[in-house]
Amino acid sequence: MSTYNFDYLDELEAEAIHILREVAGQFEKPALLFSGGKDSITLVRLAEKAFRPGKFPFPLVHIDTGHNFEETITYRDKMIERIGERLIVGSVQESINQGKVIEQTGKNASRNALQTVTLLDTIAEHQFDACIGGARRDEEKARAKERIFSVRDEFGQWDPKRQRPELWNIYNGKIHKGENVRVFPISNWTELDVWNYIRREKIELPSIYFSHEREVITRNGQLMAASPFLNMDDEDVVFRKQVRFRTVGDMSCTAAVESEATLIDDIIDEISASKISERGARLDDKVSEAAMEDRKKGGYF
């Protein structure tokens, strides 16, 4: 009997690879939603482990709010070049130009909510039947309830009361035309698991995840990167601070945290000691107790 070392990261990794291969096997036109954040970067590594030396059986799809951190886009383009896979960009700006959505106004304006429309349009245009996403159940309590294969209707809506039973490691991806499935291979990972995995795999990340000095303002008690995308006025005082980002989304809704963590080891120490959840740095979740549930019902990731 040979013994082997199969620790928790190996187990989470093997589960995620299994899920990715089920997507490949069960769907005609899957896609991997790539946000440029650490979770979707992790998904890309998992896809490499699932399908190399073959090509990915799906393109990467980036829903671009136009309000990006420059570092994310640079990273994205470099990564696409390295892995040699196809990238499809769905542009929120284009949805605005087409009049499909209307830009929000006011101090807390953000393009985060508008993304859903662009996402659904992109899914419809390319007829994707499965979209792989990097959401995790530890992020938020509505997500804690979602299946790994989460069926959405034609309008992208999640119906939490009618979820399919999901048994053992058997995933039912059967759908009717027009429906699609959101698939979350790293559902069972925590934020710390993702970081430990990134360290173990020596995965490169966009520089904004690490401590750097930048111009910020204070909004609703949080540090926001000063940028043309924030509707700033005279009351907003810009100052410089040593910060990093714990989650990376639209610039208008992603808050920075004060941090000196320049190495991945520092980040892991910081998160282990932290008393604030990752989503605590997202203004989009602060709106109400059911904010995420409502957005998911509306078609959000």
Binding site: D138, A142, A144, S187
Partner: peptide, 23 residues
């Protein structure tokens, strides 16, 4: 902490599985 759905909080019961993680 685990009753994550609106209906669950309103009715004070658990309707669907919630997954929680700790170490």
């Amino acid at each position: 902490l685990t009753d994550g759905l609106r209906a669950e909080r309103e009715q004070g019961i658990t309707i669907d599985v919630a997954y929680k993680y700790f170490q």
